[in-house]
């Protein structure tokens, strides 16, 4: 059974259809890369999955449960299993690194503070940020902030992580640190959907790649197929442009 099953997912902004009948099945623990030109709906798909943009049609099934985005309980249950990390990190600027990571486990999930803090320290060590517990987000570099954002997402022990252009706002030399963290997570049983322009990373780390264009899934396949021998003309055109530049 698929861990995440998306069927006929539609999203509209007013009269504009930005996602047109997305069908996608993702197995547990799979790392799926979403590629495609800007405005193809990759980020919208991630935002729709966590209910930040309400889908206008279609169905999402996570962990065997159908998600009803109109119902608070259903949305809450989905968000208990899924986490999203954004391009701009979105750390809470008024909180220290440690508080950013522990606030939800403690205040929302009701876990003991000591336990949450111990977990947060372990996660910070894992993303290479030990000693930054008391720092505020604006005292960190972009790459460090993004790694805190990933640690914060991991603290919620999600079964599904959505990574939306997490390296797009970073200086090139900081990208590697963040990608190393993601690579480290792959193969740990966490299902990941990764929107990125880091084609080299996707080719190397993803189990499958989804090519999107104009709100539709154009082609799905293993990285070799999508990057080297695409079946669809649109994928070929997109890849040839990327390779040329």
């Amino acid at each position: 059974m698929a861990h995440l099953k998306i069927s006929g997912l539609d999203v509209r902004y007013g009269t504009t259809r930005v996602l047109c009948g997305i069908d996608l099945e993702v197995a547990r623990g799979e790392l799926v890369g979403l590629v495609g030109p800007s405005g193809s709906g990759k980020s919208t798909l991630l935002r729709a999955l966590v209910g930040l943009v309400p889908p206008s049609a279609g169905q999402v099934v996570l962990e065997g449960e159908i998600v009803d985005y109109a119902k608070k309980d259903s949305l809450r249950a989905l968000r208990d299993h899924a986490a999203i990390v954004f391009q701009q990190y979105n750390l809470f600027q008024n909180m220290t690194v440690l508080d950013n990571i522990t606030v939800t486990p403690v205040k929302v999930r009701g876990r003991p503070r000591a336990e949450a803090e111990a977990q947060a320290r372990a996660l910070l060590a894992r993303v290479g940020l030990s000693g930054k517990e008391s720092a505020y987000p604006d005292q960190l570099s972009g790459g460090q902030q993004q790694r805190v954002a990933i640690a914060r997402a991991l603290a919620l022990k999600p079964a599904l992580i959505l990574l939306d252009e997490v390296t797009a706002a970073l200086d090139p030399e900081l990208v590697r640190d963040v990608l190393d963290v993601i690579r480290d997570l792959a193969g740990e049983g966490i299902t990941m959907l990764l929107v990125s322009h880091e084609m080299g990373f996707i080719r190397e780390a993803a189990d499958r790649v989804v090519m999107m264009d104009a709100g539709r899934v154009v082609e799905v396949g293993p990285p070799q197929q999508i990057f080297d021998t695409p079946i669809e003309e649109r994928t070929r055109a997109f890849m040839s442009k990327i390779i040329r530049h």
């Binding site: 966590v50 209910g51 930040l52 809450r76 968000r79 208990d80 899924a82 986490a83 999203i84 954004f86 701009q88 979105n90 750390l91 809470f92 600027q93 606030v103 939800t104 205040k107 929302v108 919620l156």
Partner: peptide, 15 residues
């Protein structure tokens, strides 16, 4: 986006 992040973490609006 900070608020949206908190929403996705199931934080209630008042909090």
């Amino acid at each position: 986006p900070q608020i949206e992040t908190a929403e996705v973490m199931n934080m209630p609006r008042w909090r």
